[in-house]
Amino acid sequence: MAVNEMAKLTLGPIAYHWSAEERRDFYFRIADEAPVDEVYLGEVICSKRAPFHEADLPTLIERLEQAGKTVILSTLAEVMLKRERKATAEIASMDTPEIEINNAAGLYERAGRPHRVGPFMNAYNEATIAWMAGQGATHVSLPCELPASAIRVAAQSAKDLGIGAEVQVFGRASLAVSARCYHARAHGRTKDNCQFVCEQDRDGMPLRTTDDRPILRVNGIQTQSESYVDLLPELDRLVADGVTHLRLMPQAVDMVSVAAVFHSVLRGAIAVDEAEAMLRGICGEVAFSNGYYYGEAGYRRVASAASS
């Protein structure tokens, strides 16, 4: 595999309701040990969770920046209530260009000043990406369900526009968001009276079909894939096609080791087969998938020519 120092490894925002203490420990370790270039921080899924950990943000930002990481603040995916509108407006009013907007409400508030476009913004095609770049986007995260053929065209158009293009290469895919909290529902509660039951499931609440097949994960208002996306075998093609940023989503596994494996493959230090075996060792029994990349059902694991 070609050595590529140009593509950057990023760590997406934590999707789950991890405690403030867990988050501190997690990010301190990322700062000290993980070979990622950029880290997205902030609550993206549920506005009720934010008060638990937002007080720590300045400390985390400082610690990560001291370690040489670029830090980007991400906004909520779903904006409906007053507190959600306010949280979005606060981030959108910041001077730094390193904010990631995940809802059109944020684009409105940002009013054309530089920003990144997050994976919930549906940047599916070159026309939309060009429009977004014209409105101040310096970077777009592509939707998880885009196949390789579309990623290639989208990344090329981003390149032509002089902006970054990011693809998720590890972790559960975000499949849907809702106004309803399915964690609360599972426990016979409503969203307003959830008592934060989602904190029990550090890697999402597993749903199985009635014939006992794992299918989805519930994370509050979000529904995720059961499988972890794993595009290790596809990394060199993504980079060759013009993808500039490769995103790892935090799961309840050793993310420092996950980052090290992806970093080693990007540097050409280890072979993909070896890296896959290491990733399997880190992640245990969970299913890996890359179906979306090949235009197939997202949960599928398609054998890659590059991994042989």
Binding site: N122, L175, A176, S178, E296, A297, Y299
Partner: peptide, 15 residues
């Protein structure tokens, strides 16, 4: 049930 335009459940199971 899901926010429309933000749902990839069908593609996850069917492509």
């Amino acid at each position: 049930l899901m926010v429309e335009g933000r749902c990839s459940l069908t593609s996850y199971l069917t492509g």
